[in-house]
Simulated assay, not measured.
Amino acid sequence: MPISKTIAVVDDDLAIREALDDLMVSCGYESRLFSSAEDYLAAPDRENVDCMLLDVDMPGGLSGLDLQKILSTDQKRPPIIFVTSYLDGRTKAQAMDGGAFAFLGKPVDVKALLAHVESALQL
């Protein structure tokens, strides 16, 4: 049996985390949930994450863009797919210029999300 790929879901909204978790698990992935960028950074085994679904705006701490910038210095960093309500051109440009694999709006198009996850996991 092949080893399941691990998808990290980093979003401050519990309902979004749970919905993305259900989707990833239903597609055969292992899902790890984090309510903040800080929680993700504190995870001892984050190097085992194969792809990340990341929100831009997470009040009270680091934003998704902040986390992306921090992770850009890591030797092994997962492809990042932003899933966000912040669809302005400047935010998208900043995310994509920072190396994001994709930038999707909420509510997310499930087919598009899954296609991006599959492509990201091929890297």
Rank of each mutant, 00 (worst) to 15 (best):
D21K: 12
M96P: 10
P2D: 06
H116C: 07
M52Y: 02
S4Y: 05
L62F: 03
S4V: 12
D13N: 08
G98C: 04
L54M: 15
M1H: 04
K5Y: 08
L67I: 06
M58S: 03
L23R: 07
F101Q: 05
R32E: 07
R90P: 02
L113A: 07
L53N: 09
V56Q: 08
A43E: 09
T84K: 04
C27P: 01
V117M: 12
L121E: 11
V110S: 09
L20Y: 06
G99P: 02
A100H: 01
S35C: 14
L20Q: 10
C51M: 06
Q94P: 05
D55N: 15
K106T: 05
I81N: 09
E18S: 15
F103I: 08
L14A: 05
D21Q: 09
G98L: 14
V25K: 10
F101I: 09
A42Q: 14
V9Y: 12
G89A: 02
I16L: 12
Q94I: 14
Y40P: 14
L33H: 07
E38T: 05
P79L: 00
K106L: 07
D74N: 01
L41D: 11
L54T: 09
L33K: 03
M58Y: 04
T84F: 00
V56A: 10
R77W: 00
I80H: 03
L123P: 04
P107G: 12
P79I: 11
A43C: 13
G28M: 00
N48D: 09
G64E: 03
R77G: 04
R46E: 07
L104E: 06
Q75A: 08
S26Y: 00
V49T: 13
E118P: 14
Y86D: 14
L14I: 14
K5G: 03
V9D: 09
Q94G: 05
D55L: 04
M24I: 07
Q94M: 15
G64K: 14
M96N: 04
V9Q: 03
D21A: 12
E47I: 06
G99Y: 02
L113V: 11
K111F: 10
Y86Q: 14
T91I: 01
D55H: 07
N48R: 14
P107Y: 04
P107A: 06
G60M: 12
P2R: 13
D97I: 14
Y29E: 00
M52N: 05
V108Q: 08
G98H: 08
A95C: 05
G28A: 01
D88F: 03
D57P: 00
D55K: 10
A15W: 07
D50M: 11
P2N: 13
A43Q: 10
P107F: 08
Y29G: 10
G64D: 08
E30I: 09
P78A: 03
D39T: 04
L87I: 05
I70W: 06
S119A: 11
P44I: 08
P79W: 13
Q94S: 14
G99C: 07
P78L: 01
M1V: 09
